[in-house]
Every structure is written in structure tokens, then in C-alpha cells.
Nucleic acid binder design. Structure first.
Lengths: 329, 329
DNA sequence: ATGAAAGCGCTAACAG
DNA sequence: CTGTTAGCGCTTTCAT
């Protein structure tokens, strides 16, 4: 019984190289001693570290908490741990990520929705990489969401309720995913015979005060009957602006959010929102990364979006469904 | 110029052992080549891994996001990375943590507010450990919050507003920090001549539906004029219950939360809440851990709490401040 | 089927 | 002040 035998048995490729008797003996002894091979000696020898990185825009947002949990679950099943990086908070996160890759602190990383140039830089510098919500994924494995379908659901829902004057609260960040939403929304509405006025939108960062101010200004100067927000947080801004303006949701304004975080239910009335299967997305990304590390071919996945209808959307003022009687219109 | 010289220079303890000329030469060359010592070879040699663990109850809660950011900031300054562990989501997290310690995946860990027996188990098994919000910290370095003072502020605020029938929405988790809050609140109110009825409380887990149901039942059967909640999320449940019961906040019920997360401002009216300096707390914990790892003596810290007064608290029904006229009381 | 030995990149102890 | 050497725990030849 030598080092070699132990190594072979414990790494599970002793088949045909170690006698059954020795094998059993080694396993028993190891279990008894609670022995585990030292991870870092293994890495030093040329193996991959049992750690993956996960870079997200905002750790404080519960949505990314869910993504983390999904990734962590998948990683755990493969004996890996997840190192979290917040990209908004550390302006130097890119070089840190590259550095971590260089020192083999992690075997690979998942990067959430960054601008195309950033993604390009990372794609060159990091050994194993999976992009999430990055339409331009530089030929790296990617997990996407079905934005076209999601926006179609929003358009369907709002059209059905009789809305045609629909605003768009956009996220003020240079990410492809946000740009795409505007396109898909316009396209989907246009299919339903409803054309968006190019003026009916505003941009805000994910800050409650800013989004409230912007929503206020916007609502004051336009007469949309519904508004789609790139993020639930922007919807919260709309709620506050409405309170200040004396407008009632959903009677005088229908609101649709995005992400479907817990926030949707803290708001009154509860917010209709587009749900991303967050933890499943994190899990898929981690699995894709692990496959990629193991040299397997990774098929890019696209996750479905579901509109969760709650109390913030209602028929447009004076509008009822076609079959119904129209009380005072 | 030998391996030794390089090692000495790059680890910053070349003083008096390497000539200035060689030193400079090494530094320049290293910079030019982008050379960095391999972390894991260093660990293998007996050093500490440049990673710390952070175990928190719920990653999806923005409060812990802030704690993470604080810890991450401090860790980063010392060239460390933070491995996040969610203790609610993985029932087996304790053995995973012990295992990670055994394989030297991390150098030490920060553990947030666990029950005393769990803390005891970990205290024995993990090399370097810092407890947070764990009154019973088993002689390990700990970062605490000044609960006595926080509860005093709540008691002062509510008494000043004329409340004497005060309820307590308790967190239904076996953690010392929650038990302490009830004690301190009762004590502080008692000092102000106000005794809590032992019946005026209920317990709920951090689930919006459950906390709403519990709050509903409670409010239906008691006639408190104010309520203190162990967590902002429980306060959200109170808001929903009030909406169902047709009670207005703060006119018919004053509500105080705990943690002062973003949630306070999503609620309408905005929630008065006890603020924990979350990111500072994370930072202090990480610094304490790093000191501990370096063999330095760690002085336990207690962080201050501040009551952030917003719109959810108002004078008790028919009550005005002593100096003022009483309109209809 | 088994064991001996080299070497991953680093640092500490020791000789020059 | 500088360089040589051993060895951290593992896996992978290569010999037995």
C-alpha cells in the first residue's frame, strides 16, 4: 500500500490498477482517519482549484442572492465552493478577477450581464468563463433569458387590458440586456398594432431616490396609462412618484416590473412582474462552467421568462375587454 | 539573485537581508513579467490561504449583502477573497465549514448569529473564527451590537409618543440575539414606567405570508397601539395585516422595524427602524478575523445602533406631547 | 498489481 | 548580504 495506491483509490480511478483487497483496506482506513487529500497540493500538482467565482452587479439585491444560491447548490454537488464578487462596489473588480485567475484562486468564473467590452476583456484573460444575460458572449458558454418572449408576454398583457400609451422606465447602465428589452418591447407591441412613442421613456440608475424623481418628472409630463420597468426597483420609484402625484395604481396607472423579487410583494398593491427563474439560472451557469472546466462541450441555454400577474395592472381607464359591456365609455 | 531573494522581496520582508540594488532589480523584473507568487504553493508550505469564509443566515436579504460588502472590502485590502456560505439554504453547512477548514480552503471564518450550540461546535473545529451578533461567543473574538441601547431608543421613542400598549413581533429562530431583544425592550420600557403585558407578542419566521397571518391574528385579538418587530420583514407582514384589517399606519398603529434595510423605504408609509451599521459590521468582523489569524490580540467590538425615524410611528391615539394642547382627549 | 521517485512553486533553515 | 537545499502533499511516470 503506497501513496500511489491511496491517490488512485481516493480519486476514484483505481479500476484495474489496485487489487480489490487493497482498495477496500484503503477506503476503510481513510474513512476511519477522516483523511481527505489536501486540495492545494493537488492544485499545485496541476489540478483545478475546487472554487469558482461568481461576479454579480449588486449583492444587496435579493435577486442575485437567489442566483448565488442556485450556483452554490450546483457547485456544492461537485464539491466546489463559490467566491462572490460584487462588480458595482469594487471599481477594480476586473483586474482582481484576472489576478484571481492567474493565481489559480478559482478554476473559472461566472460573470453576470456585463457590457460587451468588459466581457471581451475577460473572455481573453480567464481560463474558464460562463456569461449570463450577455447577448454578446464572445463565443464563450452562456446562459441567457428569453427576453423576446418575456416582452411579448408584457405586451400581450397590457394590450389585452386596453393599454396603448405605454411608457418604459429604463435601467441607466450600459448593458446589452437593457437595450434589448426596449427593442423587444417595441417589436412585440408593434405586432399587436400598438406603436410606442419614442418619447415615452426615461432612464434611471438603481437608486430609489433617483428613480422616484425621474418617474415623477416623466409622469408629470406624459399621459401614459401603463409603464414597464427594467427592474422591480424602478417600479418602486414609480409607486413613490404616484403617491406624490396623487395617482392611484392600478386605477390611473398600470405598472409592470422585472425580476420578480420579494420587493414585488412589499409594495402595495403587489407588483406584476416578469419572473426570471433566478436560482435555476445560477445553477445552470455553474453546471455549464463545471462542464466547460472538464472539457465537455457546453450547449448554451436560454431560460424561460414568466409574467407574474399581481395587482398593479388593470384595464386602461374606461376600457373593458371587448366582449364585456362598457359602463361609461 | 536567487529564489530566496525573490521570495523575500515579494513578501515584503527583505529589509536588511537583500541589497537595495538587488531588491530594485527584482521588483522591476517581477513587475515587468507580471509575476506573482503562486498562492497555493505558499499555502502548501504552511502559509494561510488568502481566503476567508462568511456564513450568513440568508443571502437573499439585502442586509447580509451589505455585511458581505463590508467584509469583502476589508478582506480585499489585505489581499483576501471572501467565500460566502448561506446557512439557511444548506442544512449541512456546518460540516461543510469544518471540512473547508480541514482542507484549508479558507484561513478562517466569520459566522453570523448562530445558536449557542452550533457556535460551540464550530468554536472547537475551526482554526480562526469570529462570531457576529452572538452574545455567547465561546471565548472567540466577536463583534456585537449594542442591543440594550437600541431597545432603549425604541422604548424612548414610543413612550414619548405616548404609547404604553406595545406589542412585539418576534423572530421564530433559536438565536440568542432575538431572545435578548425581548429582555432589553421590556427592561427599557419598564424603566420608563411602562410594563409589557407578557401576552403582547407573537412569533414568526422570516416569511412574508406567515408573518402576515401571524400579525393579523395578533392584531385582531389585542389592542396594542404600537408594535416592535425583530426584523423589517416582520414589519412588512404587519403592514399587510393592517391593510386587510383596515387599520391605518401610523394613525391607528405605530410600527418599528429592525435592521433598517432598503425595505423600509419600499413600504408606505416608510418604516421607522433600528439601523445596524451593516457594512461597518462586516468590515470590523473581517478585520478582527485577519488580526486573529496574524496572532494579534483581538478586542471584541460593540457597534452602536441608531433608530431611524420615518413615517410609521406617530403619537398614540388621542395623545400629544405633554407640553402641547390636547385637541380631543 | 505495486512501489519508488520526481517535481509542481514556494519558504525557512542553513552554509558561504 | 547571498545562494543552496529540503520538504510542504499530492499525482504521475517509470520500474519492479
Amino acid at each position: 500500500m503506497s501513496q500511489t495506491a491511496v491517490s488512485l483509490v481516493l480519486s476514484g480511478r483505481a479500476a484495474g490498477r489496485v487489487s480489490a483487497r487493497t482498495q477496500e483496506h484503503i477506503e476503510r482506513t481513510a474513512a476511519q482517519l477522516g483523511y481527505r487529500p489536501n486540495t492545494w497540493a493537488r492544485v499545485l500538482r496541476g489540478g483545478l482549484p475546487q472554487v469558482i467565482g461568481l461576479a454579480v452587479p449588486d449583492v444587496r439585491n435579493g435577486y442575485f442572492g437567489s442566483v448565488f444560491l442556485g450556483a452554490e447548490r450546483a457547485a456544492r454537488r461537485s464539491g466546489m465552493a463559490v467566491l462572490l464578487i460584487d462588480t458595482a462596489y469594487d471599481p477594480d473588480w476586473i483586474s482582481r478577477l484576472v489576478e484571481m485567475n492567474r493565481t489559480k484562486l478559482f478554476a473559472g468564473a461566472i460573470v453576470y450581464a456585463e457590457a460587451s467590452d468588459v466581457a471581451g476583456t475577460l473572455a481573453e484573460a480567464i481560463d474558464h468563463l460562463v456569461f449570463v444575460e450577455s447577448p454578446d458572449s464572445h463565443d464563450k458558454p452562456a446562459i441567457d433569458i428569453d427576453l423576446a418572449d418575456g416582452m411579448r408576454q408584457v405586451a400581450d398583457h397590457l394590450s389585452e387590458l386596453g393599454h396603448s400609451r405605454i411608457g418604459h422606465a429604463r435601467a441607466d447602465y450600459p448593458r446589452d440586456t437593457f437595450a434589448l428589452r426596449a427593442c423587444h418591447l417595441a417589436a412585440a407591441l408593434s405586432e399587436r398594432g400598438c406603436n410606442l412613442d419614442p418619447e415615452w421613456h426615461y432612464s434611471s440608475r438603481f437608486d430609489l431616490d433617483e428613480s422616484t424623481r425621474r418617474a415623477y418628472t416623466f409622469l408629470e409630463s406624459t399621459d401614459v396609462t401603463a409603464i414597464f420597468c427594467d427592474d422591480d426597483l424602478l417600479a418602486a420609484g414609480v409607486y413613490r412618484a404616484c403617491a406624490q402625484l396623487g395617482r392611484t395604481i392600478p386605477a390611473s396607472l398600470s405598472v409592470v416590473g422585472f425580476n420578480d423579487t420579494d420587493l414585488t410583494r412589499y409594495l402595495a398593491p403587489e407588483l406584476t412582474s416578469v419572473m426570471i427563474p433566478a436560482s435555476q439560472l445560477g445553477e445552470s451557469a455553474a453546471l455549464a462552467l463545471i462542464d466547460h472546466m472538464n472539457g465537455a462541450a457546453v450547449t448554451p441555454a436560454t431560460l424561460p421568462l414568466t409574467l407574474t400577474i399581481r395587482a398593479s395592472t388593470a384595464p386602461a381607464n374606461g376600457h373593458c375587454k371587448s366582449e364585456e359591456a362598457v359602463p361609461h365609455g
